[in-house]
């Protein structure tokens, strides 16, 4: 009886911690998507919420659900979100580039330099 209560408290605390940290990461990603200066930087903010926010919140729910069908469903949802989010992000970036949107860079001309370096290194 007493051990069961301790176990439940531990599960409650762990899942609560995961949920809260996931929420913090999600809000930071939301702030990032508003605060970062241009489109290609904002994609990183969206990636923040999609990976860590979703992952930690769903992990917290998994801890709460225990070992059951619900956990399996949560795992599948997490897997699907993690597989589709980079795909749509990449499609977004590619179509933005193809549409003529140029990313603002802080490090000048780094693309050409780096391609020269890599081709020289081979």
């Amino acid at each position: 009886m007493f051990g069961g209560e301790i176990y439940e408290t531990i599960v409650w605390l762990i899942s609560g911690g995961l949920l809260i940290s996931g929420s913090i990461f999600a809000i930071i990603g939301g702030i990032g998507i508003c605060r970062l200066p241009e489109f290609f930087s904002r994609m990183h903010g969206a990636g923040l919420t999609d990976t860590m926010g979703a992952g930690l919140i769903l992990a917290g729910l998994m801890v709460q659900a225990g070992l059951s069908l619900v956990t399996f469903k949560l795992v599948i949802i997490l897997f699907f979100v993690l597989v589709t989010s980079p795909s749509s992000c990449h499609a977004l970036a590619r179509s933005a580039i193809a549409h003529g949107l140029k990313p603002q860079l802080d490090v000048p001309n780094s693309d050409n330099q780096n391609s020269n370096q890599t081709s020289g290194g081979e």
């Binding site: 990461f25 930071i28 990603g29 702030i31 990032g32 605060r35 970062l36 200066p37 290609f40 930087s41 990183h44 903010g45 990636g47 923040l48 860590m52 990313p103 603002q104 860079l105 802080d106 490090v107 780094s110 693309d111 780096n114």
Partner: peptide
């Protein structure tokens, strides 16, 4: 990335590699 976003003056070094 979270540290960069939350710092007051975002120290961005955006580049394409």
């Amino acid at each position: 990335v979270a540290k960069i976003v939350m710092s007051p003056r975002m120290p961005l070094k955006r580049n394409l590699i």
